[in-house]
Design a protein around this nucleic acid. Structure first.
Lengths: 124, 124
DNA sequence: CAGAATCCAATAAGATACTG
DNA sequence: CAGTATCTTATTGGATTCTG
């Protein structure tokens, strides 16, 4: 069973917002990363993804389920418990995410520098 | 000097719209691919990208220029001529694009099948 | 706990027309 | 040719509130 998710996993210092690519929609890649080491409950995902409203998180998870990237398992308990897990297909995205991360480590600083340099001349 | 760009390069049969990832904004990856084998003029890019309005194409190219992905060279001629070319940084995106294409070849059919299967039960 | 329902704001993008 | 200028629309995402 996996450890608890680090609340600061996707903090602003993590430049995921500046990356020039996106897997699925805005939160898909982060969800995949959260599920990498085992299933997670809805509330668990909300910890590192506290910037996402439950509505959007639900929408994203439903879309991922529809695309065969995650499974949703609801246990008939009280209080309710729902677990999300990566499918084999969803797991294949990890390779791509890792490639994106490697690109970022290697080249994102250069991109951001270029953005800075071009941002200044047009700034008021 | 490169051949002319194939107008059908990104036709609807090309599932780029269904891919669960995106490099830059909507048209960035296609522009990178168009520039892979050498510089291209604005009008040349409009051939395979005829679904893009000049406004959006300009915006995308400007953003890419700002991020150091392409260079823009305007020749003081009449009629005017402008050429866009990949920078070294822009060229590094080709690796990532190729990774995305490989993922698609390997797994996109499965994703689309899952989407089909889940789409039917909820359809009215 | 795991969401559903409703409403709203921001952004992206397309249509259209015009110009140095 | 290579854009610019407006305008309008569509899509996302977020805020807020409520519930089985």
């Amino acid at each position: 069973m996996p450890e608890e998710l680090n609340p600061a996993m996707f903090d602003p210092v993590c430049p995921s917002g500046a990356m020039p690519f996106q897997i699925g929609d805005k939160w898909t890649a982060m969800i995949v990363i959260c599920l990498e080491h085992g299933p997670r409950r809805f509330g668990e995902l909300r910890v590192p993804l506290r910037a996402v409203t439950p509505k959007v998180l639900t929408e994203t998870l439903r879309a991922m389920e529809r695309d065969g990237l995650v499974t949703r398992t609801a246990y008939a308990e009280n209080p309710p418990r729902v677990e999300y897990a990566l499918t084999d297909l969803g797991r294949t995205l990890l390779t791509l995410i890792e490639a994106a991360r490697q690109w970022s480590r290697a080249h994102l600083p250069e991109l951001l520098a270029a953005r800075e340099a071009h941002g200044r001349p047009t700034a008021p």
